[in-house]
Simulated scan of single mutants.
Amino acid sequence: MNDRLDWEYLPQRVRDVIEDRTGTVIKAESVIGRRPGVAARLYAEQDDVFVKAIPADSPAAEPYRREQWAGRHLPVPAPAPRSLWSLELDGWLVLAFELVNDYARHVDLRRDCADLPFVLDAVGSLAVERGAVSGPSAVEHFSSLYAKGRLVLDQPHVRDLYLRAMDGFDVDRLGGSTLIHGDLGPRTLLIKDGSAYAVDWSTASLGAWWIDLVLLAPQLIAEGHSPEQVDELLSGAVPAWANVPAREVIGLTAIWGSHHLYQAEHGPVTRRDDAVRLAHACTTWLTHWLPRL
């Protein structure tokens, strides 16, 4: 599914203002993605940039505003494209980022892949408390996901596992001051020049430093890693992983798994197979962790 619009779809005045900053656009390449709006690599006389744009009053604008917020608060050394500027003009919200996805590729998370060390370095560097910043709450975000996800826990063998996993879990434990990406995986991690970059911060929030590690685990399992190997990889990336309470890992994994179960039934048809795959991986991760309670 691709609802992307081409660069030429933007109003002429919006394009003119963008070119005031980049110089004349010589070439514009639209990028396929899961969200509506414009997403394009702009090759220009002065500065090449990656531009995203959406009608400012669109229901789909909220993820863009969340990405705008994340871009403002990510520190410069973070393994992510730098936010260069943003503007709102003639009813359009426009975001401009450092062009790191030029000649980049999506990561390969399979076992023994050369990309893994770069990915784990990037994930480890993101798992840091950032200090006092106001913004969207991970508690609210994952509470919303679970409110939908629990609607599909109708099969006894699934319901019993998930209810056991959520028993005694307090979603408020997801609170914190780390800027969480919220959806790290092959689709949102790029490799370029021996470095991994986290892109598409449209699900970003503030929460506990370990959230992205928990969410990455099923992605690794889905790519062929055993739960034991995932534990070893995460501990190598962030030694403090060994101290994350089992109740928190299990509770968040249950929320994440129920979200993918919901997407497998009600999400876009083109993404349902991937949702099923990740839901199964979450079940495997839960089964591995539940004996630790």
Rank of each mutant, 00 (worst) to 15 (best):
18 I>Q: 05
149 G>H: 08
191 I>W: 01
62 E>D: 15
266 H>D: 04
43 Y>D: 03
58 S>A: 14
49 V>Y: 13
90 D>L: 02
212 D>F: 08
291 P>L: 01
242 A>Y: 03
233 L>I: 08
35 R>E: 14
271 R>S: 13
211 I>R: 01
54 I>G: 06
255 I>V: 13
274 D>I: 11
66 R>I: 15
25 V>I: 11
259 H>P: 00
16 D>K: 10
163 L>F: 13
174 L>R: 08
213 L>I: 14
182 G>A: 07
201 W>R: 04
291 P>E: 03
9 Y>K: 14
127 A>F: 07
250 I>M: 06
171 V>L: 10
258 S>T: 11
186 P>F: 00
89 L>F: 11
40 A>C: 13
137 S>V: 00
207 G>S: 10
46 Q>F: 12
113 C>R: 15
227 P>W: 01
30 S>A: 14
163 L>R: 14
200 D>A: 04
282 C>G: 13
238 V>F: 01
54 I>P: 03
226 S>L: 11
90 D>S: 08
63 P>F: 05
113 C>A: 15
187 R>N: 10
14 V>P: 01
93 L>V: 05
200 D>K: 05
32 I>F: 11
235 S>Y: 07
85 W>G: 08
31 V>I: 14
59 P>F: 07
153 L>P: 01
42 L>F: 09
240 A>V: 11
50 F>N: 03
163 L>N: 12
52 K>Y: 12
92 W>A: 01
229 Q>I: 01
241 W>F: 08
146 Y>M: 15
249 V>G: 00
198 A>K: 01
201 W>M: 06
68 Q>F: 03
245 P>S: 12
200 D>E: 07
239 P>L: 13
255 I>F: 02
56 A>Q: 15
243 N>C: 05
175 G>I: 04
61 A>T: 10
287 T>M: 07
264 A>Y: 02
220 L>R: 05
286 L>F: 00
21 R>A: 05
46 Q>K: 15
66 R>V: 15
51 V>S: 04
21 R>E: 11
273 D>C: 03
129 E>C: 10
257 G>S: 08
277 R>Q: 09
101 N>A: 09
129 E>W: 00
133 V>C: 06
274 D>K: 07
207 G>I: 00
107 V>F: 00
49 V>K: 11
216 L>S: 05
264 A>H: 04
248 E>H: 09
208 A>F: 09
137 S>L: 02
192 K>M: 02
126 L>S: 06
134 S>Y: 07
242 A>M: 07
76 V>L: 15
40 A>R: 09
289 W>K: 02
265 E>I: 06
288 H>P: 02
52 K>P: 03
216 L>A: 05
254 A>E: 03
262 Y>D: 02
58 S>V: 11
289 W>F: 02
43 Y>E: 06
80 A>I: 14
112 D>I: 02
195 S>V: 13
153 L>V: 05
34 R>A: 13
140 E>P: 00
49 V>T: 09
273 D>H: 10
